[in-house]
Amino acid sequence: MAATEEHTVLPAPTFDKPVKVLIVVSPYYSDIANGLLTGARGALEAAGVAHESVEMPGALEIPTAIGIADRASNFDGYVALGCVIRGETTHYETVCNDSSRALQLLGLQGLCIGNGILTVENKAQADVRADPDGQNKGGGAALAALHLIALARKWTDTRKGIGFLPAGDDTLLA
């Protein structure tokens, strides 16, 4: 059972320059969203990270909001929070798959995103996962975003090439 399994949680990375994160949350299930948000904010604040939050109607709108924010702002990373509970139709699969796929595609484009959109069978599972004093999936998503930001910053100044420096203004070519 997931609630009793042991797993490794990496410590929060440290930063030498300020970090700014946008939390995008869907309050569709407001009590679940509030738990996720409390956990995410707690993790970011414990790491000394500045953050803002915006709400979107549902999980499908979260990736679009992150894409818009990335084009129009200066956030270093993003935390996606929400909950999708299985219902009686196939809409569950659509929302789970499409929101997750869209976040993954944004990540592959270089955005640092912690995915805290819960996909569960019932509300009881969501309650356990969203509880900041329980599994704290909101805090976990925030930490995931911070680890990706740290990795991106580690390699930002790395020069690309094939073992040599590109020609500069002081380089003469024949």
Rank of each mutant, 00 (worst) to 15 (best):
M1W: 06
T4L: 13
T4G: 07
E5H: 07
E5R: 09
H7I: 07
T8F: 13
P11I: 01
P13D: 05
P13S: 06
T14V: 10
T14N: 06
F15N: 10
D16F: 04
K17A: 15
K17V: 13
K17R: 15
I23W: 14
I23D: 09
V24N: 11
P27F: 00
Y28W: 07
Y28S: 03
Y29F: 10
S30R: 15
D31G: 03
D31Q: 10
A33S: 13
A33G: 07
N34M: 10
L36R: 01
L37D: 01
A40Y: 06
A43S: 13
A43L: 02
E45A: 14
A46Y: 02
G48P: 01
V49M: 05
A50V: 11
H51K: 06
S53G: 08
E55K: 07
M56Q: 09
M56A: 11
G58M: 04
L60K: 12
L60R: 10
E61G: 14
T64G: 11
A65N: 08
A65E: 09
A65I: 04
I66A: 10
G67L: 05
G67M: 09
G67V: 02
R71D: 14
R71Q: 13
A72P: 00
S73I: 03
S73F: 15
S73G: 08
F75I: 00
V79W: 07
V79R: 02
A80G: 11
G82H: 00
C83M: 02
V84S: 05
G87F: 07
G87Y: 05
T89H: 12
Y92N: 12
Y92C: 10
Y92Q: 12
E93G: 07
T94Y: 12
C96T: 12
C96H: 05
C96Y: 06
N97C: 09
S99F: 05
S100E: 12
A102L: 09
A102C: 11
L103W: 12
G107H: 09
G107R: 09
L108S: 06
G110T: 01
L111A: 07
C112H: 14
I113C: 08
G114C: 08
N115T: 08
G116D: 03
I117R: 02
L118F: 01
N122W: 04
A124W: 01
A124G: 04
A126Q: 04
A126N: 04
A126E: 04
D127S: 07
V128R: 08
A130Q: 03
D131K: 12
D133K: 15
G134H: 12
Q135S: 09
N136I: 03
N136A: 08
N136V: 08
G138L: 01
G138R: 00
G139C: 06
G140E: 11
A141C: 08
A141H: 02
L143Y: 00
A145W: 00
L146C: 04
H147G: 03
I149E: 05
I149A: 08
I149N: 04
A150M: 04
L151V: 08
A152M: 10
A152H: 13
K154L: 10
K154R: 14
K154E: 14
W155A: 08
T156I: 09
T156P: 02
D157M: 11
T158V: 15
R159W: 05
R159C: 04
K160S: 13
G161L: 01
G161Y: 03
I162Y: 07
F164K: 05
P166I: 00
P166V: 00
A167T: 10
A167L: 11
G168M: 01
T171N: 03
L173H: 14
A174F: 14
